[in-house]
Write a protein that binds this DNA or RNA. Structure first.
Lengths: 357, 357
DNA sequence: GCGGATCATGGTAGCGATATCGCGCAAACA
DNA sequence: TGTTTGCGCGATATCGCTACCATGATCCGC
């Protein structure tokens, strides 16, 4: 009767018992090996590991969490619904969450709102950690509340690496440098720059990258061609209008994000200036807008999905390490992870038009 | 010893047993009630439901799936990465999925690609049903493959209700009527319309709504003011340019989606026409673009999130009903669900300017 | 009015893993 | 030598729920 396996058996997947039998030990020992067991002889461990490999065994999640391994609940907070960013983020997080067997709680959280209440509620509902995409990852009040609740957080794409805060990001400065070099390589000499919202530190980094690259190419930067924006379409439109009204307008404008770049294109069209023939415009972020408008924008793409995955990986691993005692407290151990971006060339850039040079 | 509750007890959460005790029945009956029990007396069901509410009981996911309730895997296929739409959709689906304890598999699927292969792979990986947002919900080849695999699908926002296909949608015709009436109420008489991509049936419905409302108001429609578009920014730009070049241009343009409306605004600005002072422009869908550009678009918002939730609800319930035998096969029982839309008034509309009248 | 179908419900046995004990056995101590 | 650790490991008891029968009750047709 033992050999007539219950038909309830969900799938042909091997179980701890199968592994144990093959390894010649008890299921308990198998479990110990799997969970970073400490008191297992090397020899035994190897046998178990071999058995696991041989059977292609993978622990059953449901059983594991039922048996006491409390579930891991991660809150993904978001504020600025830059939808393109959010959807990529969500997809990355969902993938990682299902892989890591963590439960993802997605919640909107406006910085202007009652942040403390949101955190308190989440903390009370047994949340184990936070994932904070921009602009939340730079919200000091929010970070303080989370720290008070003694909960770990992982920052996604903050401009600046905050000490003591684990983060996944790209190198904004270098990306801006690359884009600037790209413009210079096209032949542009008078290049304008529209700065992003000063409250987000990525703005300063992108500006610095721009200045660096210009300086390295031995090009002087006309301060009249560096205009403050706010990351909004409208601010880009205004900034571009201002630059194009100059006696000697730029032949290219690098906007610190796509929304502002789209505004630039609109401003140019209003002045009867063709993009990219008479003016090159490029953005940053590669949001949906970049490939919606016409001409489609040359921009910098962040690997948002991958960033989300890495962030969740790190967060979950950190929390598990604390739980099983192999780490005293959640700390940014691998500290900050920096991933690669891509320069996406589309249709909004070209060599400068001779008549405007 | 029975009263010294095991310290392994994960949380203070109530269990089926608690509910059963309170309801005066066995845990088994509680389980039946929860899972759309069929053979449960009305009286008993009510008692159980009352107990569940009183204890604020919620089934334990892990236990449920461990106990043999095979997991429900739903594939959400998407193609056109209109990011705004996608992120709303994802959030709605995730909410519903976590509530219903279904596993969501999100996958990109280009209609141009090898659809058959994608479906085959998914079907092989034990997918139980599909969620199809536009434009996939109108892809006949895709629907045929899914039908061949004998898997249920739920359409989200198809223009037309396809017989035999369960769907969640809004009334496109009525929404277009409402928007048109709104324009008429503002005083517009010469109203242009940009048709969407002819491959999506929503296009025809929106056009029909426009014509209906105009006719009802006793206004003649100048066929020169009805231009074919493609749902893209560029097509909207071209269509608007064409209309504005007419000897007697419209005072308002209703574009069948936001991208095209944004193109209209750009075309107007290029001609030195101010929006909304000299020209009213409105869109449809309320994607992120609508509130990104300037002026922000007056448009129609679909309750995408809610649509996603309803779709998943229906799909999961349908599948569970088939599984537990209370339905012979997945069928569009509540058939088509139609949800309400909202007319979002922003800054791109105004009463017609007298000088252009 | 009786056998057999159908219904509403309960008892029991797991699903696959881990928590908790406790047992041997070796090294370390008194 | 007797006792105390401590380590490596196994037996057992759940975790919360549902599948699978078994049960008694009601209902039907002949």
């Amino acid at each position: 009767m033992n050999e007539t396996r219950s038909r309830r058996r969900q799938s042909g997947r091997p179980t701890v018992n199968d592994v144990a039998r093959l390894a010649g030990c008890s299921p308990m020992t198998v479990s110990r090996v799997i969970n970073g067991g400490e008191t297992v002889r090397e020899e035994t461990r190897l046998a178990v590991e071999a058995a696991i490999r041989q059977l292609d065994y993978a622990p059953n999640r449901a059983a594991r969490s039922l048996a006491g391994a409390v579930g891991l609940r991660i809150a993904l907070l978001y504020a600025n619904p830059s939808a393109a960013y959010l959807s990529e983020l969500l997809i990355g997080c969902m993938d990682a969450a299902s892989r890591l067997d963590a439960h993802l709680v997605v919640e909107r959280c406006e910085p202007a709102g009652d942040v403390a209440k949101v955190i308190a509620r989440l903390a009370a509902s047994a949340i184990d950690g936070f994932l904070l995409p921009p602009p939340l990852c730079e919200d000091a009040a929010l970070l303080a509340r989370i720290a008070e609740a003694r909960l770990p957080a992982m920052l996604i794409g903050p401009g600046k690496a905050l000490p003591g805060q684990a983060a996944v990001m790209i190198d904004d400065t270098r990306a801006a440098q690359d884009m600037t070099r790209h413009l210079i390589a096209l032949g542009h000499r008078r290049v304008g720059f529209i700065i992003g919202n000063p409250a987000q530190s990525a703005s300063a980094l992108r500006l610095a990258g721009f200045r660096d690259a210009m300086a390295q190419a031995g090009l002087a930067v006309d301060e009249a061609l560096i205009v403050q924006g706010q990351f909004t379409y409208r601010s880009g439109l205004d900034a571009a209008a201002q630059m194009l009204a100059l006696p000697q307008p730029p032949t290219a404008i690098f906007a610190a994000n796509d929304d502002m770049a789209a505004g630039c294109v609109a401003a140019a069209h209003r002045c009867g200036i063709d993009v990219p023939r008479d003016l090159t415009v490029c953005g940053f972020d590669d949001t949906a807008l970049a490939s919606t408008i016409w001409p489609e924008l040359t921009t910098i793409r962040q690997p948002i999905r991958q960033m989300a995955e890495v962030a969740l990986d790190q967060l979950v691993q950190g929390i598990r390490n604390v739980r099983n005692g192999s780490a005293p407290a959640f700390g940014p151990r691998p500290a900050h992870v920096t991933l690669d971006y891509t320069l996406v060339q589309r249709e909004s850039d070209a060599a400068p038009c001779s008549k405007l040079r």
